[in-house]
Simulated scan of single mutants.
Amino acid sequence: MAEPLSEQIARAFIAACEDELAAPKPGNVHIYAPGHGMEAQDFIASAAAAAPHLAAADASVGARILGAVEATWARVGCNTNLGIILLCAPLAHAALRAGESGLAEKLVATLDSLDSSDADLAFRAILRASPAGLGSAPQHDVAAPAQISLREAMALAAERDLVARQYANGFADIFGLGQEALRDARARGRDRETATLLVFMTYARHFADTHIQRKFGEKVALETLTRFQEAASLLDAAHDRDSMFRIALELDRSLKKSGYNPGACADLTVAALFVDYLLAILPNVHKNG
């Protein structure tokens, strides 16, 4: 009997999270080094807890987000994965949509269908997770009842948050930049861990990380962007995995010493890996009944 699609999606989410942890992403938690008071096992446990809620067969996007966040808190007692959940919930919902359209098209339809109830549930999840540097907004603050759709609310935050920006641009950076980096790494014969590192570095060299910006300000975020661009150039010139990992881990130690965590770029990396897994699953859905 074929495995239900919801279970395949849950496994894909867990696999994407584990892949992200297996690469030495500078400044983030990974299997080579803890960071910011957390260890890789916290994120592995969080992925397992969140997966069934993200991939539930008949749930709204908002319900997926809130269920996954609450399950994460029940398991690990801290915010390990809010950005990941906010990105992967609409992707999981899109993958479960009926029809012959591709994943990107289904994702746009999912984003277009979001309403104020999705926003209410997502706001509750964000308040529960209490992310660093959340602050408040003059309009449509997450502490107040939602009066607009979740996509509209995210669009208002798009300039200051890379995760929110994906809701506004149809996940263009996930389906575009992320998938291109993954394909390029594979074409160059990179293994899974190195390919994941290169996807992360692609985001980190293109964007000033908005998690760092919220916590430390724009100046630090831009300085960190420059450091990532310099490290990425070194990675471009490196030819073997060991050299690439040494470069990444040297920057990792330096960033963690300062407390800088490029968490938004890590969130985008998980989403890009999740899309890659979903694209491998979806062509087989109709063949498997």
Rank of each mutant, 00 (worst) to 15 (best):
N169W: 02
T202Q: 12
A109G: 06
V163R: 10
H53N: 12
Q41H: 13
R227N: 11
T72Q: 06
A132Q: 05
G170A: 02
L87C: 11
A195M: 06
A172Y: 06
A10L: 01
F175I: 05
A157C: 14
G35A: 05
R183Q: 15
R151Y: 00
E152W: 01
Q179N: 10
T226P: 00
A185F: 03
A129D: 08
Q179A: 11
L197K: 00
H53P: 06
N79G: 04
R75N: 04
M38Y: 10
R165S: 09
L251R: 00
L182E: 03
E193Q: 13
L82K: 05
A45T: 11
A119I: 01
P24T: 12
F216H: 15
Y203I: 03
C78D: 06
F216D: 07
I85D: 09
L86W: 00
E250N: 14
S233W: 03
A185H: 04
P26H: 08
A63G: 13
V108C: 11
L255H: 09
L278K: 00
D19W: 11
S6Y: 10
G176M: 13
G189S: 07
V220K: 08
G263T: 09
L86Q: 08
R11I: 08
I148N: 04
G289N: 14
R160F: 01
L278C: 07
F245C: 05
L162C: 07
Q179M: 10
I14D: 01
Y203R: 03
A143C: 11
T72M: 13
L5P: 02
A94K: 06
A168R: 13
G176K: 11
I247M: 07
G37D: 07
A185G: 04
K106H: 13
V275A: 03
F123R: 09
A49E: 05
R160Y: 05
A204L: 06
